[in-house]
Design a protein around this nucleic acid. Structure first.
Lengths: 235, 235
DNA sequence: TTTTATACTTGCGAAATCGCATATTTTTAA
DNA sequence: TTAAAAATATGCGATTTCGCAAGTATAAAA
């Protein structure tokens, strides 16, 4: 498989394409590398040296933080155009892992080039700062939710989170391969609790279980479950 | 009280002083405003319009996210040199509030000037990106901890968090005014549980309660309680 | 100083969550 | 297609956390 040049790449959400000058896009295109990761392969491994940043050209990824005990926490999901490894900035080693949830194509740019790019393309830095600020906002909200919601609410939120990131296929199933364990790691509980809660949602006709797959029947119903935790501001 | 000029300000942790050119420091100094906030006053109010960024010249601050029900989550603590309101970047309204835990002096820079500053001082943007990335890392770790730790561990972590940010005074008390409610909001539980847990820590001779104040007797003991949740990488 | 308000503590029953054990189903591999 | 492995479902007792209530201590106000 040949490397896609940035100039020909059709991913319109890529930060490089959005914020860099044509000359710099060309430079990056020349020196970047590109790797295909199979389902469940680790793109980034917690504890490894930070060598650069990853840009998802096309794929579905979970970002996980692993405890000493092996328990995992899914910190966020990512897909096309999203960045991986930016938390390594200013650090020696990656604080988290990133795992492909299905086959994913990822571009990689080394640190030295990145520094040059940032100094020469202030719009990229600005764009990334806005991105960071949104990430912070999202995760802060999620932290509050994990702290305040009960299990039922947290599972509802996890389903909505996955739906927002990966969408539904034509059969209205969540459009990403995942296990009960993944939901448990998102929510901070164990697989049994997820099973029980999904069963309950199914009896309430909010979802339908199809083997490992989950069909979203009533998004509004799930949203209603968590609505009391969200403030909406007057415009 | 007169406004401190940036040139004469002694806060060495300020991002402006660290990363901007002398001309830009001067420009900022001229157009910034400076406000003193008393204990428990709101520096930033969730839902209000984002007009700029705040830089803490000297003070102690908690950043809180409030639920519809009024339940609060302390998202992080901040002190001298830290930034407030940066999560508003790219947003219309602030997603969180910031409250002075004791009298605090804060500088404010409006949006328009900020954009100019970023475009003209790429090192500032870089510095801020590293800052953001560290914030992300911290909060992701904290999210995992809130999700995985039991109450005892979470309270130990909250005490260590405050100690790291605000230090101890000569009597080894946590050097910041706070209530049990503050710890509860950090941990995601209620005041009663905090009382019980502090009592338990006191019997274990890890801390000593002096009215509202908390003396840290054995930091290593608190660290040991949470150690099983932290990975350390080989150098 | 005295009073009042606020914050803190503790007991105890209720509720939620956990975690083992086991059965079933689904997926993967042969 | 069949066999083996992995993932899912569910009952149930154990454990943790919650939340009210009532009392005590501390800080703020008069």
């Amino acid at each position: 498989m040949r490397k896609t040049s940035c100039e020909l790449c059709t991913n319109v959400n890529c930060f490089v394409k959005m914020y860099c000058s044509p000359e710099w896009i060309h430079k990056i295109s020349l020196s970047k590398s590109q790797v295909y990761f199979k389902q469940n392969q680790e793109i980034i491994k917690e504890g490894e040296l930070v060598l650069g940043m990853f840009f998802i050209q096309q794929g579905k990824v979970k970002v996980v933080s692993t405890g000493l005990d092996g328990r995992q926490q899914i910190v966020r999901f990512a897909n096309d155009g999203h960045i991986l490894g930016h938390r390594g900035l200013g650090y020696e080693r990656y604080p988290i892992s990133a795992v492909a949830m299905e086959g994913s194509l990822v571009c990689f740019v080394v640190n030295d080039l990145l520094s040059e790019v940032f100094m020469a393309n202030p719009k990229l830095s600005m764009g990334l700062m806005v991105f960071y600020s949104r990430e912070l906002r999202k995760i802060e909200t999620r932290m509050k939710n994990i702290a305040h919601m009960n299990l039922r609410e947290k599972v509802a939120e996890a389903l909505l989170l996955m739906m927002e990131m990966f969408g539904l296929n034509k059969e209205h199933e969540l459009n990403v391969p995942f296990t009960r364990e993944d939901i448990a790691s998102t929510v901070g509980t164990n697989v049994e609790q997820i099973s029980r809660q999904l069963t309950e949602f199914e009896s309430a006709k909010l979802i339908q279980k199809r083997g490992r797959k989950v069909v979203i029947l009533k998004k509004a119903g799930l949203e209603h479950i968590i609505s009391k935790h969200f403030m909406q501001y007057a415009k």
